[in-house]
Amino acid sequence: MRAARTAYPLKWRVMDALEGVAAAIWPARFRRATPYLMLLPAVLLVGLLVLGLIQIADASLRTLDTTTFQFSDNYSIANFRRALTEPLFLVVAQRSLIAALIVTAMTLVFAFPYAYLMVRTRSPGLRKFLLIALFLPFFIGQVVRAYGWLIILGNQGMVNEALGLVGVAPMRLIYNYPAVLFGLVQYMLPFAVLMLAPALTAIPEELEAAAGSLGANWVRTFIHVVLPLARPGFIGAGVVVLTLSLTDFAVPAILGGGSQDFIANAIYDQFFRTSDQGLGATLALMLVALGSILVGLVFALFGAGTLAMGRSRA
């Protein structure tokens, strides 16, 4: 008996049993459907977001009765009319959109050389240093990072204290638009570098050498060889930075101090300050639409870049 047991270990028995169960539940003739079964949990989980969007759409069509604080049972588009006509929302939307564009441009300007140096350097030590310097802040939340900026730039912050030592009156460095932009660029840099780096790795270094040997200086090599070939990376990085900064909440809230609200802050206020869930839902829906249109536009024009998942590489 003993000999038989060692010849057929417990692990095999367990595996046999599992295989048996699997074969009973999912016979071989279902094999063609296996990938769909594997995708099902993810599809269901993301389905929660779709359900959420449906709830938002439903709420956006109900108006708040300010005398009873009840939401109407019948649908109307009054919220959308308000969202589109109230000047406050227009200001906020404009502010967020312009910020997103500036932040995207700024982030790409700094992320490209960072990614390029990280990919092209011959020193493994420098590469590791650049990677660690990138990942450490990436893994520290927005709130903590914004808090760090408050310590540096705040009214009693380090910069103002240091300026005070040399007799310069304190300046207001936070709670303004540039502070929010700056905080966003810092927040977005790791995302952008991580989207750009794979695209740069894919460019053979010999191409740059070839351009150089044909007489192009490094600026022309960048413009005519590196930048065009890095396009998938720029698309990926651009889309991520654009949408994340357009819809950010924490940086405008902490570094803007309530005076520099973005769309997300306006939505939050509608839900938790004004308690007008309908109008808040309307704004949320419009933001989702705006974000999707921007992403869709970029994808339609340039393809999915480094954002593509799975086998097909656009």
Partner: peptide
């Protein structure tokens, strides 16, 4: 392609939208 786009929804829907949607459901 459709499944890929669908599975990217968590990234394309702004966090405030996802958060409020989940809060409602």
């Amino acid at each position: 392609k459709t499944i890929q786009i669908y599975l990217l929804l968590p990234f394309t829907i702004p966090l405030i939208g996802s958060g409020i949607g989940l809060m409602l459901i």
